[in-house]
C-alpha cells in the first residue's frame, strides 16, 4: 500500500534525517521525498512510502518526534491497486 504524508517539521539540525530514518526503520520504504521551506517557520517534507503497515501508524510515530510539528496523511491512492487491464488509457499516456 502506498501512503503520502506531508510533514511539517523544525529546521533544526537533524530534523529531516531523523524523520527519514524513522520512516525506513519502522518498515516503510521511501518512494519519493521533497523538502522545502515552509511559509511560516520550519520546513515541509512531502514523502511517498510503501508498506504493508498502516499509514496512520507511521503518522503517529512521526508525530512523537520533538522536531515534528504536524503530519498530514493523504488519502491512499486507490488507482494503483487496480489491475493494469482496467486502467483508463489516458493514464498510460
Amino acid at each position: 500500500m502506498n501512503h503520502t504524508l506531508h510533514i511539517q517539521l523544525s529546521s533544526c539540525e537533524g530534523a529531516v534525517i531523523r524523520a527519514l530514518g524513522l520512516i525506513e526503520r519502522r518498515g516503510f520504504s521511501l518512494n519519493s521525498c521533497s523538502v522545502s521551506e515552509a511559509d511560516g517557520n520550519g520546513r515541509v517534507m512531502k514523502v511517498s512510502v510503501t508498506s504493508t503497515r498502516p499509514g496512520d501508524l507511521l503518522k503517529r510515530q512521526l508525530e512523537r518526534l520533538h522536531d515534528v510539528f504536524y503530519v498530514e496523511l493523504k488519502p491512499a491512492v486507490i488507482s494503483k491497486l487496480q489491475p493494469p487491464g482496467i486502467r483508463p488509457i489516458s493514464r498510460r499516456i
Partner: peptide
Amino acid sequence: IFGITLPIVKHSYIVR
C-alpha cells in the same frame, strides 16, 4: 554520535 544514536534517543542536540 548524533547520527549514530538517532534511532535510539527521544531527542538529541549538537550545541552550536
